[in-house]
Nucleic acid binder design. Structure first.
Lengths: 230, 230
DNA sequence: GCAGCGGGTCATATTTCTGTAACATGTTTG
DNA sequence: CAAACATGTTACAGAAATATGACCCGCTGC
């Protein structure tokens, strides 16, 4: 797992800055939101690997948010760590009941924060939460790093593997070339957008013999999509 | 969202020019009005994504306007940022109570203005809030970029897709060809108005097999409309 | 240093849109 | 009813987006 994306939802700028610094120091990619709705939109288009959620937020409370996210398919699997002021220990109970995976009391030390985050991420076994992704006889085993189509091994280069893995993990969703570059190649990498085409091509070629190439669909003017429906 | 439309309601020309410049610089599409009534008519036929409203206006005060807009269905969801002279902080309260979403004191820096606008727009998270639009068995999935009619896939070109998406997002409302060009093709694009007809035709043709073509209605002398009522 | 592999870019082929013009069909008005 | 308009349809060539194949460069392991 290269540089998990962590979203910090916290209204107080200084705390946010501090956390961002700590995270990036620790090799995470930090995303930030100052309120519930911007958090929502970041989640929608970045789907972070972990959320740090402030207990007290203007408007909707963090508690409420956590509960909501745990209900929705798209967000259910994203682990949440609550940031709470050191008030009553009782909050802990509430926080965990709301679906949070862990909690940290403010003020927190960066080291503690990072340690807990790593623990949670390890537990969640993030991206490939299911060891193997499946669709129409196509199998991608995230543990063994191998892809099988109708019990026949498929040879893929590393990039094609990551690309397929990402697409299979988010089916029926269109991703623009730019988004794919961000999510599969990694941010802060400058590569031509057209390069995505080429890798899509290589991926398709590899899937062709087993008739799975049509799972990788072009959406003209928008990007690419993995879907079992035609 | 490509290039949100921002309406500036401000009677002093120089300030307006300045704001317009700043906005366009930042990639917004600027609309302007010097008084309440022209603002009203621009809103009616452009429905901007955000309104910058001067506190002091000849005739009706900005405050009053904001209040009025927040009461009407058509305008309620358009966020408003108040522009106020740096007088009393109390105005702030009044401004927010009137329903404004934020306020900026004059003189303002373009950067601040733009930053706040972005924040407000993000909060509003408008267009893509519902992932899929539905009407009479016709479904448009904005995430997967797919259109389904009675569970049967509908093939659309990019423009037809955008056109349908726009119309479905604003049902029961007539749009002139000019408005559609603005909203679907994008401003500063010069294209024959009759071109809209052709795309409407293509859209209808695609919806015909599933009997959904009648949802796209012609309003002679006015434009087109999407509606489930005949 | 060299062969081999991966991966990025370019140039070129293909496919798919798009805008317009031209003509057809309706509608309204005087 | 005919002229003047408004909208519907179709065909088509230019433009845009994508697919594909070739090339090249840097790195790894000999």
């Amino acid at each position: 797992m290269s540089s998990p994306r962590v979203l910090i939802v916290e209204d107080e700028q200084p705390i946010r800055d501090m956390a961002v610094f700590a995270l990036e120091q620790a090799g995470f990619t930090a995303l930030q939101a100052g309120d519930a709705s911007s958090a929502q939109s970041i989640i929608a288009d970045q789907s972070p690997d972990l959320i740090l959620l402030d207990w007290m937020l203007p408007g909707v409370s963090g508690l409420e948010l956590a509960r909501r996210w745990k209900k929705e398919d798209l967000t259910r699997d994203i682990p949440i760590i609550m940031l709470t002021a050191r008030v009553e220990e009782d909050d802990k109970v509430l926080g965990l009941e709301s679906g949070a995976d862990d909690y940290v009391t403010k003020p927190f030390s960066p080291r503690e924060l990072v340690a807990r985050m790593k623990a949670v991420l390890r537990r969640a076994a993030p991206d490939g939460s299911d060891a193997t992704l499946r669709a129409n006889g196509l199998e991608l085993d995230t543990v063994g790093h191998r892809v099988t189509a109708a019990h026949r091994q498929v040879e893929l280069g590393p990039t094609e593997y990551r690309l397929l893995k990402f697409l299979m993990a988010h089916p029926d969703r269109v991703y623009s070339r730019g988004q794919l570059l961000d999510r599969v190649w990694g941010s802060n990498v400058y590569v031509e957008e057209r390069t995505v085409d080429v890798h899509i091509r290589r991926l398709r070629k590899a899937l062709e013999p087993s008739m799975h190439a049509n799972l990788i669909q072009t959406v003209r003017g928008a990007g690419y999509r993995f879907s079992t429906r035609l």
